[in-house]
Design a protein around this nucleic acid. Sequence first.
DNA 1: GGGTTTCCCAAAAACGTTTTCGGAACATAA
DNA 2: TTATGTTCCGAAAACGTTTTTGGGAAACCC
Lengths: 335, 335
Amino acid sequence: MAVSIRDVAKAAGVSIGTVSRAFNGYSDIKDETRDKIIRSAKELGYVPNLSAKMLSGKAHRSMAVILSGFMVDRGLTEELVIKMLHGALEYGQEQNVEFAVYALSSDQQREKSFDQFLAEHSLAGAMVFGLKTSDAYYENIATSGAPCVLVDIEIKGEKVGFVGTDDHAAFAEITDLVIESGHRRIALFNGRKQAKVCELRQKGFLDSLKKHGLKAEEIAYTDFNLDQSQQMAMDYIKENGKTKATAFVCASDLIALGVCNAIRKSGYVVGKDFAVTGFDGLRIANLSDPAVTTVDQNMEKKGYAAAQMLHAIVEGKETERKLLIPYTVLKYDSI
Amino acid sequence: MAVSIRDVAKAAGVSIGTVSRAFNGYSDIKDETRDKIIRSAKELGYVPNLSAKMLSGKAHRSMAVILSGFMVDRGLTEELVIKMLHGALEYGQEQNVEFAVYALSSDQQREKSFDQFLAEHSLAGAMVFGLKTSDAYYENIATSGAPCVLVDIEIKGEKVGFVGTDDHAAFAEITDLVIESGHRRIALFNGRKQAKVCELRQKGFLDSLKKHGLKAEEIAYTDFNLDQSQQMAMDYIKENGKTKATAFVCASDLIALGVCNAIRKSGYVVGKDFAVTGFDGLRIANLSDPAVTTVDQNMEKKGYAAAQMLHAIVEGKETERKLLIPYTVLKYDSI
DNA sequence: GGGTTTCCCAAAAACGTTTTCGGAACATAA
DNA sequence: TTATGTTCCGAAAACGTTTTTGGGAAACCC
């Protein structure tokens, strides 16, 4: 089981130091000797012990993607998680650096600090996705000093970076679109109030309205899920019919789909009686009928960029510490 | 940066051995001493070095979830991956064992054997998802001897287990349903020919037909994606209209959705002119109009069960080595 | 043929733990 | 008082690497 460098050395008739050098591409070693060592190693099925490598300082320390609250918010926006992962892992494969993915609950974060987690796993740094201001790592990371890149939530710190979307601008833009299509009484169906992005999106929404001399017809908060928002929209429409808001600007595609369902079930037509917009660019939004106008966050690019930034920070290279990935407005018939 | 056990020992005025014992809950140590040590450790911000721990034998070896071909088949069935991960990670959190997730391409698998990967990362075992018969690990794992649980592809080996779905039965059942709804000329739109599951599904399809004294009207192969299958269905319908197959049994929901689109674009109505069934139980299938009849594989349960089985194998406990997770047929208006 | 390089390799220290072994200090029993 | 346990802790070996240091042998130069 445990075939070590010592065994290889013995088999090849050299010292362990030589074996080590042979493996690490040093030049001061005869080709003949190296070949013999490599051959012996292969024969014995030798695998360098990473722990030992790390201990001795020379370590191939990898990086991590930490999914915060992945288990709790399940179903939330799986597609976004996956896209982000795709982007990050793609960078890893391109650059030949390894990324391990961990899911850490709020409880786990409380048990062990960010630094401790990295140290324990010999990680050079981590990118964190899904973090909330109420999570333990939120404070942790600011004071940490360890390389870290946050996605979609900004924290300042010595070695921390941020990759996100200009939520404010995106939301202003999509609200503009709704207004330009003729709507005047517009409601915002936002996500959880305490979420940072929701704050920004709301601001974008309000600023767009103000620019056009309008005021919000209604602002409601819901979880990022279909059922709850559907119920909310159902109640709203039942109570007001078309006398109040005629357009629903939603903070996510899931919310938007819930609203669409409610509109249909109330006997109205999406895109005709009521306008609906979403946010995220989920595939479902496009398959819905009519497709709902939304904003694609380019999550894959975000993941890629975050990985890249983290890598740069880890390697001590100069790099931008804040990056806003361009978004794409997808205009369809829901408005 | 590097505050080691030695520093703690010095600060607390004891030897390193004592510090180690204090941390590992040994009894032969005075409470007073232990407290002092813990206090010093906290003060210094001491974090035990996991590499060193492993080296010295006493190690908290964790397990891994390996995603094979995650980057290549992107978009394929993200939802299934996520659900599987949810299940596996949930088991991990419940049992307080850590699962790290890695994505390994075919190339990476060729570079480094399964055993080597585990050894290098000090992993006690791994569950593998998305493996194809053409992947290097496919042979690798059989001869490995390391704890491993495969999802959806069966390999026999000393310490390897399998968790899957009874694809044959499921497919026979959904085909039965189509036949019972009155269709007689039925086509199969299968996935890639070399995939194990596709073989099984096809067999289930054919067996159901045979049972009812029917023969396949058509069997076609496509990638598991929407666009390609849509094109294929388009061509087929354009050529034959309703004169040949009137029902399309598809090996995945993505394929089914492509077929639905083709039907609609050809001016026919899904569920009336043509019947369509899928496989996977994706959310999109349910949101489509009409919702497509499909089979939910209960991917989350699969992930959970696989993690559980792996854990048992790693711990040397007795456990079933083959597990078929019950599926759920979801009948909707597409047939 | 003596001095200088150059090339290759062995020996050993270092990394941060765990664990075994033994011994000091103290308490108890005879 | 001596013998016998107990309780607590220090010293040191071991884990598998990397890296530094030093030196022997071969090759080169005059």
